[in-house]
Simulated assay, not measured.
Amino acid sequence: MGNTQLSKLTPVLLQSYVNDLVEDGLASGTIKKLNNILKSALDHAVNMELLPSNPIVKVQLPKITKKEMKVWQMEEMNQFLQVAIKHRFYPAFHLALTTGMRRGEILGLRWKDVDLEKGILYVHQTLSGDGKYFLNGAKTEAGVRSIKLANESILILKKQKRLLAKEKLACGRAYSDYDLVVCTSIGTPVNPNNLKKTYHKLIKEAAVPLIRFHDLRHTHATLLLSQGVHVKVISERLGHSNIKTTMDIYSHILPNMQEDAANKIDILLTNTK
Score class of each variant (00 low, 15 high):
2 G>W: 12
3 N>V: 09
3 N>W: 12
10 T>V: 04
11 P>M: 05
22 V>L: 02
30 T>E: 03
35 N>I: 06
35 N>V: 10
37 I>Q: 14
38 L>M: 15
40 S>P: 03
42 L>E: 04
45 A>P: 13
52 P>R: 07
69 M>W: 10
71 V>W: 07
76 E>D: 13
83 V>L: 02
86 K>V: 14
95 L>E: 00
99 T>P: 02
99 T>K: 09
103 R>Q: 14
110 R>Q: 15
116 L>D: 07
117 E>A: 11
118 K>Q: 14
119 G>T: 07
120 I>F: 01
122 Y>V: 01
123 V>H: 04
132 K>N: 11
137 G>C: 09
137 G>V: 13
139 K>I: 11
143 G>Y: 12
145 R>S: 07
146 S>L: 00
147 I>M: 02
151 N>D: 14
154 I>W: 04
155 L>D: 02
169 L>A: 08
169 L>Q: 12
170 A>S: 13
171 C>Y: 14
176 S>P: 00
192 P>R: 06
198 T>G: 13
198 T>P: 00
199 Y>H: 10
201 K>A: 12
204 K>E: 10
207 A>Q: 15
207 A>D: 14
208 V>P: 00
214 H>W: 13
214 H>Q: 13
224 L>T: 03
235 S>F: 05
237 R>L: 08
238 L>Q: 11
239 G>T: 11
240 H>V: 12
241 S>A: 15
245 T>Y: 03
246 T>L: 03
252 H>P: 04
257 M>N: 01
258 Q>E: 12
264 K>S: 06
267 I>P: 00
